[in-house]
Design a protein around this nucleic acid. Structure first.
Length: 427
RNA sequence: GGAGAGGUGGCUGAGUGGUCGAAAGCGCCGGUUUGCUAAAUCGGUGAGCUCGAAAGGGCUCCGCAGGUUCGAAUCCUGUCCUCUCCGCCA
């Protein structure tokens, strides 16, 4: 959420930003309502002041005769105040409804454009896409060949979009987690395993919308709990309502969680196999920083994602996300897209990570602030998130890039210690 | 799941209708003292919003949301959370 005062004072800027991002929100109405709300607030405060004054006089009054008229007046003032308050609350509700739709501001260097076509490739990883001397299989065919993923049982037990990982795929999942965690722990990140469920309130604070028509979120009936779509939700909620010491920033976490997504409306989109599924495991980075460090932290997180995938030997490109393709809370976002030889005709790039600087947009709603020692007042922290490794997508990239002519699949060297072998099938 | 107890400022913790934005202690900031450190001592020290050029005002906040009242940290209702005991359980 943006600061309402900021919106009032920068209506044009906010309006322009909305249109760059393809968001329709009536900023001018928002400003108008907010001004009315403030006028009403002043009125409420004045009546409150009067009410307090009367109450103080009653306390001083000695006799019942002196007291009674004051009590009567006090009651009237309270009634007027209640009415004004109700009007204020209604205005406030309307303002918030509009404000919730307004996305974050955008980094000046982010490419401007309506959708992903406008994304800008900023660099490539160390490894080139492999040149196969044979027709490569896709991960579904490879998984079937080596009995790595059981889609049929997944569908039988939980429906389409669910799967059982089996055999080396299981070891690969665990190896990927361990690999990513070790790398991040060495970088000063605190490892955590987060809850897989979170309250409505937390989801909203982080910028997810539970329980709507088009929601991506599974909710638990008769509770205010939801299955998390990413550990970003739980990690962001971790310090909600807290005032953090400035000296302790930045706080860096790497959190492991399962991720659940309804993928409503995604049917029909190119998504064979485990590219788009209802459940997967992910190691997520999350940072709470001071405002002045957040841009640099985004670069750092992106660089770490690159290290993860360079280390795995997977070819990728880094993309600077265009305004129209940014999620509401993101100020700037980089995606890593790995080369997936089995995707489309002759291979395609497929998103494997995503890192965003959300500046103070999430912190304002989650009420996460920091305090400088010896200084009055508090400020909102900046929050950033980034995928270290989303297992299902990484698995696709590994299986498809590491396949060999005889149908076997090499295991990336960095994972071999945990998988306990160098190759799946073959020789 | 059942029974109890409790949620107060950065922390510990007092406070059962007005004198409470809230005692006291700790912490923190500044002064004095001190060879340095420590100790001692004095003073200061919550947050948000709002009016004002400033000085300085006003409003709100004692888990959260409502209610009663001229007046609520204090009474009532709901809700969330924490702790203890019992039950169940990997």
């Amino acid at each position: 959420m943006l600061d309402r005062r900021f919106v009032v004072e920068n209506a044009e800027l906010v309006h322009q930003n909305n249109s760059n991002r393809g968001v329709k929100a009536d900023v001018h109405r928002l400003v108008e309502l907010e001004k009315q709300r403030r006028a009403r607030l002043l009125e409420v405060e004045e009546l409150n002041r009067r009410k307090n004054e009367i109450a103080a006089n009653i306390k001083k009054a000695k006799t019942q005769d002196e007291r009674q008229p004051l009590i009567d007046e006090g009651r009237k003032v309270r009634e007027r105040q209640d009415a004004a308050q109700a009007e204020h609350d209604e205005l406030d509700r309307q303002v918030l409804d509009l404000l919730r739709v307004v996305p974050n501001l955008t980094h000046p260097e982010a490419p401007v454009g309506p959708g992903e076509e406008a994304n800008r490739e900023v660099r490539r990883g160390k490894h080139q896409p492999p040149q196969f001397t044979f027709k490569p299989l896709d991960h579904v065919e490879l998984a079937e060949k080596h009995d790595l993923i059981d889609f049929e049982s997944g569908a039988q037990v939980a429906g389409h979009g669910f799967y059982f990982l089996k055999n080396e795929a299981v070891l690969l999942e665990l190896a990927l987690q361990k690999y990513a965690l070790d790398l991040l722990i060495a970088e000063g990140f605190t490892p955590v395993i987060t809850p897989d469920l979170a309250r409505d309130e937390v989801l909203q604070g982080v910028g997810f919308i539970p329980r709507g028509e088009a929601t991506q979120i599974y909710s638990i009936e008769n509770t205010d709990l939801n299955l998390v779509a990413t550990a970003e939700i739980t990690l962001g909620g971790m310090h909600a309502g807290k005032v953090l010491d400035a000296e302790k920033l930045p706080l860096l976490y790497c959190g492991v969680s399962h991720c659940f997504r309804t993928e409503a409306g995604a049917a029909g989109r190119a998504s064979r196999g485990i590219y788009r599924v209802h459940q997967f495991t992910k190691v997520e980075m999350f940072a709470f920083t001071r405002p002045e460090e957040s841009d640099a932290t985004l670069e750092r997180i992106c660089a770490l994602e690159c290290r993860v995938f360079d280390g795995l030997g997977i070819p990728y490109r880094v993309v600077d996300t265009a305004t129209g393709d940014l999620g509401g809370p993101a100020y700037r976002k980089y995606d890593l897209e790995a080369w997936m030889p089995g995707r489309g005709e002759g291979g395609e790039w497929g998103e494997v990570t995503s890192t965003s600087n959300c500046t103070d947009y999430q912190a304002r709603r989650l009420d996460i602030r920091y305090k400088n020692k010896g200084e009055k007042g508090t400020h909102f922290v900046h929050t950033l998130n980034g995928t270290a490794v989303a297992i299902s997508r990484a698995l696709i990239a590994i299986l498809e890039n590491y396949q060999e002519e005889d149908g076997s699949i090499r295991i990336p060297e960095v994972l071999q210690p945990w998988v306990g072998k160098a190759r799946i099938g073959g020789k």
